[in-house]
Computed example of a mutant assay.
Amino acid sequence: MPHRRIKATLTVVLVVLSLVGQLLPVRAASTLTISPSRTQEASSSGVTLILTVRGLVGGRSYTDYWAVSDPSGNNYAITTTTVAPPSGNYTVIEVYPRDFGVGAGLTYVGQYSVAIFQTSPGTSLVGAGQFGIGITDKLFYQRTQLISIKAAGYNANDMVAVSITKGGIAAPGFPIHVTADGSGNIFASWITTASTLTGNYTVSLS
């Protein structure tokens, strides 16, 4: 039996809206870039975290502590050590969840928080930001666009009901039942039409 119940809200609109990655300045000497700023559960590429620190002492070793907190409150952390080049600037790239060890994943809908502390030779916050995980590929859609639905964290071969509703009324063709693949992922889609009503729709899996 499925062991997760998740829900998300999407909007069908008549204009094109795009979501862009965010560049988060944390102080004059460092920046953290998070890309993409939102993606789906079951994303195979994960989320790339790029930390750039400037104005350091060339030849000195610096240690950074990277921590990611998921919407359920679980924390995953790694430590990196970099010897600054003569320029005194360095960039470190890590990918969540790939580089964050056993248990790290993109299996919860919501906001994930990122904090990076330089712990040696001194202690300071050098990067902070957030990224979002959803079960749809976007938050806003035009009529006739394909809505992709992906979810992770199920058992292989779980049978999952996928529902799309607007004001409690099911979208045409829903609910549907989908079997999780061998990795516990669910994939579904909905093609909106020219007559699809605009407004907020709720996507839920149970």
Rank of each mutant, 00 (worst) to 15 (best):
G88T: 06
G110Q: 09
P71H: 05
G101D: 00
A104C: 07
D158P: 05
I133G: 02
S69I: 12
A104T: 04
L106R: 00
A77Y: 11
R143T: 13
G132M: 08
R143D: 05
I169D: 04
N157Q: 13
T81S: 14
A156G: 10
P121M: 14
V160W: 10
V162N: 08
N74D: 15
F117K: 13
G73T: 03
L139V: 09
T82H: 07
I135Q: 02
A161E: 15
V95E: 03
T107R: 13
K138W: 07
Y76W: 10
V109S: 02
G132W: 10
V83T: 15
V160M: 09
S72H: 03
Q142V: 10
S72Y: 03
Y141F: 15
G153T: 06
Y112I: 06
I78K: 08
P172L: 12
A151N: 09
Q130H: 11
N75L: 13
Q118H: 07
V102I: 10
S87H: 06
V162L: 09
S163G: 09
Y108L: 09
A104F: 01
T80K: 15
K138F: 10
S87G: 14
I147C: 06
S148C: 05
V102N: 14
G110E: 06
R143Y: 08
E94I: 04
G173P: 09
G134P: 01
T107P: 06
G132Q: 11
K138Y: 10
V92Y: 09
S124P: 00
K150T: 10
S163V: 01
P85D: 12
T81E: 14
G101N: 00
R98P: 03
T79K: 04
G122M: 07
N155G: 15
V95T: 15
A156H: 03
I147N: 07
T123I: 15
V114A: 01
K150N: 11
A171K: 06
N75E: 15
P121I: 10
I93P: 00
A156P: 05
L146N: 13
Y76G: 00
G127N: 01
L139H: 08
N74Q: 15
P97S: 08
G101A: 01
T136N: 07
V102Y: 13
L139W: 09
L125H: 04
V109C: 03
P86K: 08
A128V: 14
S163H: 02
V126F: 03
G167Q: 11
A152V: 02
A170E: 08
G103P: 11
N157L: 12
T144Q: 14
I116F: 02
Q145F: 07
G101L: 00
G110M: 09
D137F: 05
G173F: 05
M159Q: 14
A170P: 01
G132D: 14
S120Q: 15
Y76E: 00
I133D: 01
A156T: 11
A170F: 05
K138T: 07
I149W: 09
A171V: 12
G101M: 00
L139E: 11
V114M: 00
E94M: 13
P86V: 08
A77D: 13
A161K: 14
L125P: 01
G110P: 11
G101C: 01
L146F: 04
G105V: 01
F100T: 00
S124G: 09
I149D: 12
D99H: 13
N155W: 05
T165A: 14
G167S: 09
N74A: 13
T91N: 04
G88N: 08
V109D: 03
